[in-house]
Nucleic acid binder design. Structure first.
Lengths: 211, 211
DNA sequence: GGCCCAAACGGACCACGGTCCGTTTGTATT
DNA sequence: AATACAAACGGACCGTGGTCCGTTTGGGCC
């Protein structure tokens, strides 16, 4: 009776998959080691062999946990990303709720630009498994779309949202800031200008003001 | 007297570097073999070893010529890219000169979107050495900037140009078209809408039309 | 406690990109 | 034609990402 296999397959309303104790321990070990190594060497000096050695596990285990190098980097990014999402959903204005939509949108761009630039190496190393796959990207797009709705912008909102976020992607920003040497403020101002054109409000002050 | 070393260093007004006959021959051999292999296997099934073998040269030679796998892919892209630039500079309208600027801009987007999608695998494989490095990207940006000038758009034109091109980059397009399954026409329409907002012309017909 | 087995482990192994360096070859000079 | 040398060549070699498979282990069940 108590051997009913359904008990284990549907233990509770908890749909989270079971994870063995050693697996969980190793995940922590690896994540910590990886974070430390990224901090002290930079993302693209971290090799999977070295990571395994440092965490004291076999290489196979690393790949079992994270699938690939990109997956590992994505997992590292995950912490940051969750924090960012939390800030957007329930943090203080203007990024969080409470400010008018346009201000929130501009704050989102600012925040996104800076964090993207800050973790550029990690994001690059994460590749396809990175922002795009882990839902990070779709969350941002969804939120922009939401703000555009509030701003009563009409058109193909999903597309418009992606178009607004595209100039904030790593390759573009690195080209502008690192290679072309443009100051971050200028890039940001350019983005704000783009946003205003898209939402149809020529300037911060509504039409009628000077300039 | 005739041994004056300057004679060889400055042979003529021809500043193009000399290239030994065997080097040139091998470049052709490699480029042809690479193109064939990409065509029949797809870009990311082509290995440098296999390419060297097929072209009948040593592996060292491949890297001497192209520097890296990315460099090779970029070299393959080069043909396509030159053709595209030629079409923009001196091809038939609306992509080439002769059409009104807004039409040219929209044609540019259309053309760029399609060719990018068509060569997506190659572009991805080219990575940093690809479009961005080989000047392809800067040419497009320059031209968009030029068209924006003709459209009397004011603002930070270099930034605006990049922002318009960003949604046409490979990762964005692949996400939308290949993963989300959006039809190309819709993506294109979305881009056209973005352009109109940026240049400040709400629709094809000037304000006053029925929309 | 003892049994059982799915899950996790670990490290030998493989494939591929990239480098190195001793050898060959094209070309300019005489 | 002979000489000289820079450039090009080629393949052995190395590091790294990723796989495979025989071994170990956590934890539910009796």
């Amino acid at each position: 009776m108590t051997s009913d296999p359904a008990r284990r397959l549907l233990p509770l309303a908890d749909q989270a998959a079971p994870e063995r104790a050693d697996a969980a321990r190793n995940r922590e070990l690896l994540l910590d080691a990886a974070a430390a190594m990224v901090a002290e060497l930079g993302a693209d000096e971290v090799t999977m062999d070295a990571l395994a050695a440092r965490a004291g596990v076999g290489k196979g285990t690393v790949f079992r946990r994270f699938g690939s190098r990109g997956g590992l980097m994505a997992a590292l990014l995950d912490h940051t990303e969750r924090a960012w999402q939390a800030a957007v959903i329930s943090g203080p204005p203007p990024l969080g709720p409470g400010a008018p939509p346009l201000e929130r949108l501009l704050a989102l761009g600012d925040s996104r630009l800076r964090t993207t630039l800050q973790h550029a190496a990690l994001i690059r190393a994460a590749g396809a498994e990175g922002a795009r796959a882990s839902g990070a990207h779709s969350f941002a797009a969804l939120h922009v779309r939401h703000l555009l709705t509030q701003l009563e912008v009409d058109g193909d909102l999903p597309l418009l949202a992606v178009a607004l976020l595209a100039p904030l992607e790593v390759p573009v920003l690195e080209q502008q800031v690192r290679l072309d040497g443009l100051p971050v403020e200028r890039v940001l101002a350019g983005w704000a200008d783009l946003v205003r054109r898209v939402v149809g409000r020529p300037a911060v002050t509504p039409p009628g003001g000077a300039t």
